[in-house]
């Protein structure tokens, strides 16, 4: 998989993404935009494109960090309870402050996502049977337990249907003024890039890292903070995009092996391409209506996940 092709795919899909929609805008119109068209472009189409790319990149990188830290190919924000914890956080912020600002929501969601991921790591410490298959199983269980706590409060406040709509990753809600929070994840992804090798070492375990002179706790904590921050930002602006952080790094690893530093750019690009592709698909299938990205990625992602699992088993045995 050449980087060049990925970049090309990204450009092609980006342009397609800008020109799809109920309001007709063709590439030729770019030279003589009507006010109406310019408005659509600036308020809706471009923000959507930007947020798609940022979310795709950051969720894939996130998955990669988590897989390095846990040394397990099948751990990701979806399979470690991070997303569910962030969701609980959003709910709590809604209950505490009736009219929470996005920033307040994000902070509360961040605290919960951090706590959730941290608890998951603690559980991992306690699990004796570190089977590749078993760990994500535990993570998904943990996620649904957190989910049941969310339901408990949501039910009392009649918010079940609201919760459902957050659960669903959806870019159609992204308009100017509602997605800017996503920019927070850009510096975080850069930090992740700089720390990449340290995450790999930390994944080998505390003793191993201390032996190599690495501040283990610090590195792990930075990793967890990045994971929690990005997850909560994404969940607030876009919603849950299941399995994205899981399938992208795995696909890249199949083609390129496991060199983290070299894989990072590919992972980022492929993540963006994948999300763009799924989004376009979702917008076209029942045009002029939309299938939210949570569903398209959910279907395609779980298919790929299953394939990866089967493949893994074939290799392992």
């Amino acid at each position: 998989m050449r980087k060049r092709y990925l970049v090309m795919a990204l450009i092609v899909l980006s342009s397609i993404s800008v020109f799809i929609g109920v309001k007709n805008i063709t590439p030729l119109d770019l030279f003589q935009l009507s006010d109406d068209q310019a408005q659509t472009l600036l308020v809706s189409r471009l923000p959507r494109l930007v947020s798609l790319i940022i979310a795709g990149i950051s969720m894939s990188i996130l998955g990669m960090i988590m897989q390095q830290l846990t040394r397990n190919k099948f751990v990701s924000p979806t399979t470690a309870g991070t997303m569910d914890s962030a969701r609980l956080g959003v709910l709590v912020s809604l209950m505490l402050f009736t009219s929470a600002t996005p920033l307040q929501k994000m902070l509360v969601a961040f605290v919960f996502a951090l706590a959730g991921t941290f608890i998951f790591m603690k559980i991992l410490d306690k699990v004796k049977y570190k089977d590749t298959i078993f760990i994500p199983l535990v993570g998904l269980m943990f996620g649904s337990i957190v989910g049941s706590i969310t339901t408990f409060f949501a039910y009392k406040h009649d918010l079940i249907q609201n919760i459902s709509s957050w659960l669903q990753g959806n870019f159609s809600m992204v308009v100017k003024g509602r997605y800017e929070l996503l920019y927070i994840s850009i510096p975080l992804v850069i930090i992740a890039y700089l720390y990449a090798n340290r995450f790999t070492i930390a994944g080998m375990g505390e003793e191993f890292s201390v032996n190599l002179g690495l501040k283990y706790k610090q590195v792990v904590n930075i990793g967890l903070i990045i994971i929690a921050l990005v997850s909560s930002v994404v969940i607030l602006t876009v919603g849950v995009i299941p399995f994205l952080g899981l399938v992208i790094p795995n696909i890249v690893a199949i083609y390129q092996g496991d060199n983290l530093k070299r894989n990072l750019p590919h992972t980022a690009l492929l993540g963006a391409v994948f999300v763009l592709g799924c989004d376009i698909l979702g917008r076209l299938i029942i045009y002029p209506y939309e299938i939210p990205i949570g569903l398209t990625v959910g279907v395609i992602g779980s298919g790929i996940f299953l394939y990866l699992l089967m493949r893994r088993i074939a290799y392992a045995s």
């Binding site: 998904l140 459902s164 399995f243 569903l295 279907v299 699992l309």
Partner: peptide, 19 residues
């Protein structure tokens, strides 16, 4: 794990309809 993934898939579909 395969069962759980199907569960997630069913979950996504129900959520979609519920919304």
């Amino acid at each position: 794990l395969v069962g759980i993934i199907f569960g997630t898939l069913f979950g996504s579909m129900s959520t979609f309809m519920q919304v």
